[in-house]
Amino acid sequence: MAGRRSYDFMYRVGAPWETSEPRPELAELLASGEIAAPGRALDLGCGDGTQAVFLARQGFETTGVDFSPTALAKARRAAGSAGVEVNLVRADFTAPRVDGVAGPYDLILDYGSVDDVAPAKRGAVAAHVAEWTRPGGLVLMWCFYNDIPWWRWERMRYPGRLRPGEERELYEEDFTIRRLAAPVPGSGSACFLLRRRP
C-alpha cells in the first residue's frame, strides 16, 4: 500500500515486477481461446504498460490506468516503440468517479492492484470492476494472498494481500470465480479468473 511518490521512485529506478514479457497466465489464456481477442480491455494499475501493450498487439482496444505519472510515461514509450495505440489514463481507481475509464470492457486485468489498496477501499475498486465489465466479460486478477502456513508466514514479509475468501466477499455477487492452478496454494500469491454474470 505504497503511495504515488514511492511508485514514481520505483518506476524511475526499475520496479522489481517490471518485465518485457506478458504474464504467462495471460498469454496462456489467450492462446487457449479462453480469453477471446479482439475486444475492449482495461489494465488496472498498468504500470510500465507491458500487459497493455501486449493486449493491444493482440488486437484489443486497450486502456491502461495508473496513478503514477512516471509509470505512465514508461507505458507511453513502450506503446510507441511497439507501434500500438494504448489509451493511458492517470487516475485513482479507488475514487468514486474515474474520468477517462468507461466500460463495458471484455477483459479487465488486475495484477497486484486491489491487494495493494487499503482494505477499506477495496470494495470501491470491486464496484468499479463490476460496473466496467460487460456481462460475460472476464477479469484476470493476480494478487498476494495470505494462505501461507503460519510457520512460514512468521518469517516472511509481504506487502498488501488478500486474505482467503476475500475475493468472494469482493466479487462473488457479480462474478463466478475460479482460482487458476498457478501460483500454487500456499505460495503467498494467487491468480483468479472472474466471469461477469449476466
Rank of each mutant, 00 (worst) to 15 (best):
Y105Q: 03
R90K: 15
L44H: 01
D115G: 09
A78D: 01
R152Y: 08
R161G: 08
V89H: 01
A124W: 00
D116V: 15
A130G: 12
W151P: 00
P119T: 00
E154G: 11
S81C: 09
V53G: 00
L107C: 08
P22S: 07
E25A: 13
W142T: 12
A71T: 05
C143G: 07
D147E: 07
A130H: 01
E85K: 15
L55E: 00
Y105L: 06
N146Q: 14
A36M: 10
A75G: 06
R152P: 05
R155L: 15
R122M: 11
Y105C: 04
A37P: 11
F93Q: 04
T133W: 10
S32I: 10
A75K: 08
G33C: 09
A95N: 10
T133S: 13
E61W: 10
A37K: 03
V86I: 03
G64Y: 05
L55R: 01
A118R: 13
D66I: 00
P159T: 00
A73L: 03
S20W: 10
R134G: 14
D66V: 00
D66E: 01
P149S: 12
L26V: 02
V84S: 02
S113F: 15
T133C: 11
R122H: 08
R76K: 13
S68W: 06
T94Q: 05
P96R: 10
P104K: 04
Q51K: 10
D115Q: 11
L26D: 02
G112Q: 03
T50L: 07
L42M: 08
P38T: 01
S113T: 15
V89G: 03
S20H: 12
I148L: 14
A36S: 14
G136C: 07
D106Y: 10
R155G: 15
I35T: 02
F67L: 13
G33P: 11
M156V: 06
Y111W: 15
A75R: 08
R161Q: 15
R23V: 13
A56D: 00
G80C: 11
A118G: 04
V53P: 00
C46N: 10
G64K: 08
C143F: 04
P22E: 06
E61P: 08
W132F: 13
A120F: 12
K121H: 13
P69A: 06
C143V: 14
A127F: 02
A78Y: 04
A79R: 05
V114S: 12
P38I: 03
V139D: 09
Q51H: 12
W153N: 14
F54S: 00
A124P: 00
G45C: 09
F67N: 02
P69W: 04
G80T: 07
S113I: 11
I108Q: 10
W151H: 11
G80V: 10
R90C: 13
G112P: 08
W142V: 14
D115H: 15
V98A: 04
G33H: 07
A27L: 11
Y105W: 06
L42W: 03
V65F: 02
G49Y: 04
G100L: 14
L107E: 03
F60N: 02
G112A: 13
C46W: 09
L107W: 04
W132C: 06
A102Y: 09
M156H: 09
V129D: 02
L138A: 11
